[in-house]
Amino acid sequence: MNTTQQSNEVYSENGIVYPDNVMLDLSNLKKVYPTPKGDYVVLEDLNLQILKEEFVTIIGHSGCGKTTMLSMIAGLNPISGGNISVLGNPVKGPGPDRGVIFQSPSLMPWMTALQNVLLGVNQVFPHATKGQRQDIAKYYLHKVGLENAFHKKASELSQGMQQRVGIARAFAIKPKVLLLDEPFGMLDSLTRGELQDILIEIWNKEKITAVMITHDVDEAIFLADRVVMMTSGPSAKIGDILSIDFERPRTRKSVLENDDYYTYRKHLIDFLEH
């Protein structure tokens, strides 16, 4: 794994010292929802460092707080305790440095595929010319295989195609971190496979640090450098971390043929069934 080599350079922010290859740092993260019966602790003492150009998948049982964690990183959900920082800068709210691919494609149905991608591009590249912004949006739509659907209304696209637009929109704003909240959970397994291939193909090129929630053990292994396993809530924390040492770029075939694949798979399933 080329991203794990240690660097000697460090920089500091708020007195905390970070190695410079850390993109995303979660320290002592805590989330509490007040209820009439007292506080409900979703996450507690959660510590995780995600390196630059690393692809991390997060797996755990439903309701363990994975989505809560991701939306806190996105800045859409306030933090109850601890810290989240991106390149040493504490997260204070949502922003385009952390692109999100939501579980439902969340496209504006009244806009075309191109307009949906441009909505973000226009925001992030305000000084580019109109033509340049169009080119960026079209480039990413091309990458996800939608070169014939630029001007189709989002509401006319299938779920799978809508999620492709979602991927294009997230990559097109060139975020520092990409957050994926079970983006393929609502798709059939064939479409899911296609989209995994598309996602990993773009990612191989852009190497944007990615954190992805998934329920699918095979998806977790195929895409990730590390699989983070979360314990069941309440007070969920990180249970185990598994490094996936397959060469990149990977193909589905080479992954399936590798003997380690089944060891990894067993490790994950043992954890989940425990």
Binding site: R98, M108, Q123, I173
Partner: peptide, 27 residues
């Protein structure tokens, strides 16, 4: 307005004007 659209607007940090005219009103 669908919470997902609002979240997208937040992540993209759309300004109030853009948020109202590009997201909230059409929806």
């Amino acid at each position: 307005v669908d919470k997902d659209y609002i979240n997208v607007a937040k992540v993209l940090k759309l300004g109030t004007f853009q948020k109202v005219f590009k997201v909230i009103l059409p929806s």
